[in-house]
Design a protein around this nucleic acid. Structure first.
Lengths: 244, 244
DNA sequence: ACAATAGTGTCTGTTAGACAGTATCGA
DNA sequence: TCGATACTGTCTAACAGACACTATTGT
């Protein structure tokens, strides 16, 4: 008699031991961006443990099988532990895996990418030394761990696309914010200047932002109108890209 | 003396054993679409082993740590084993993970989505009984394994977007093909009819397709011009979406 | 000749970009 | 008043959609 012919799924699961199979090291890393003082910044953490101890790398870690019900839970938990809050915008970026990217063996990281206002986690980040914002334009001065530079590039490219056809980058700003600031975030992401008029028209047409009615003095010059995010912000897609 | 203070990365790796940590079951699954007889089809495989033995599910499997250097290698290997060839278009779709999606425990699948001409794997698929094309409009009649229905939906949505701003769906057609056929593929993906004129204009403007110079009789009526894919097809993006 | 299918010519509406103009602040 | 910044009015170019028209086949 061949036992496998009549084996039930219950029997199979009772005898299943994952340690009998080759093990893939699986982690979740996040690329968190913000905007501060006319610069795009990305959050990095200095690694305390081997491998790559001492290097700056993306905030990430193992899945906690008891606490995390989904991959997004892991990303939320890790980011909250580094910033004090869950970012207002997060999406899955992609997975990066291979035999050589981690010296411990075949590994996969599921990467998320997120946006947060600089002020939302200012005090939390100032209270520690191992977590810092870095100017994304100066990452070449740093030697990052693993393949995290490539993952950050993928995150930038994702938000570059979003800046072309959505107003999602508004999540990088503290409310209320001016359209001048938001346009600047888009310009940094896209890598070119944008027409004021075109940008304002899109904001009005979309309904993805709400005018608060207040104004803010901008140093010298006419004060700017202030806006906040509408609940539909994340869903709105322009059918045509901005930018010449 | 505290050994960890002076421990080198080499020492750490020598003592590293992945079995000491909680194990996440990691697999790669692919959503392969094609077009045949005015229908969108997706490739499914009937599961031979537990869990979910007997159910139809996405082609997928474990990473072969000796053969696969990257995640895409795994997707290629599995798809080639089911169709006889590597599909001409494949991209990473996203990762689906959680505590409850596989009865064996916490699991992650890295999903790819791909396109192939129906004829490219016709003979290979006809030679086996456990691998079949299914009409994507009739998947509700099937009880799929795991969360694979949700993954297929994500793949459809990905290609729905691509159909709005690219000509990537041309990979689902055998060369040479007519614009009528390609437009039909786009219409099925988008879920609405498209203007002939708009579609032809985009093809001409993009340079992503090359006219072969031949024609094909289409039953009755004027014969249609035939096209093949240009090498730039995958890169081209329209700045504006098609469709009202 | 006719139906059926493929492709074209041309008009219109929409919207991005350009640019000049107006509005409102500080100095 | 002047410079600086924010916002608006309006023209133009580009392009999608509509639709009528021509082209080419089988019956």
């Amino acid at each position: 008699m061949d036992g496998t012919v009549t084996e039930t799924e219950r029997d199979y699961l009772a005898g299943y031991d994952p340690r009998e199979f080759p093990i893939v090291l699986t982690t979740v890393d996040s690329v968190l961006f913000t905007y501060h003082e006319d610069r795009l910044k990305v959050l990095l953490v200095q690694r305390a443990n081997h491998p790559q101890a001492g290097r700056w790398a993306l905030p990430g870690g193992y899945i906690d099988q008891d606490r995390d019900a989904t991959l997004e839970d892991t990303a939320h938990r890790v980011l909250a532990s580094k910033t004090g809050v869950v970012p207002p915008y997060i999406e899955q970026l992609g997975s990066f895996g291979g035999a050589g990217r981690d010296p411990r063996g075949w590994s996969v990281t599921i990467a998320y990418t997120a946006l947060i206002p600089f002020q939302a986690c200012l005090t939390h980040i100032e209270s520690v030394t191992d977590t810092q914002w870095f100017d994304v334009a100066r990452l070449n001065e740093l030697e990052l761990g693993f393949d995290h530079e490539a993952i950050i590039d993928a995150g930038r490219e994702r938000f570059r696309q979003k800046a072309l056809y959505s107003l999602v980058p508004a999540h990088a700003l503290q409310e209320p914010f001016s359209l001048a600031d938001l346009r600047r975030v888009h310009e940094l992401l896209i890598g070119m200047t944008l027409s004021r008029k075109s940008f304002i028209r899109r904001v009005e047409e979309s309904g993805a932002l709400i005018e608060t009615g207040d104004e803010a003095p901008s140093g010298r010059g006419r004060p700017s109108k202030l806006y906040r995010r509408s609940p539909h912000l994340d869903d709105y897609r322009f059918i045509r890209n901005i930018g010449k």
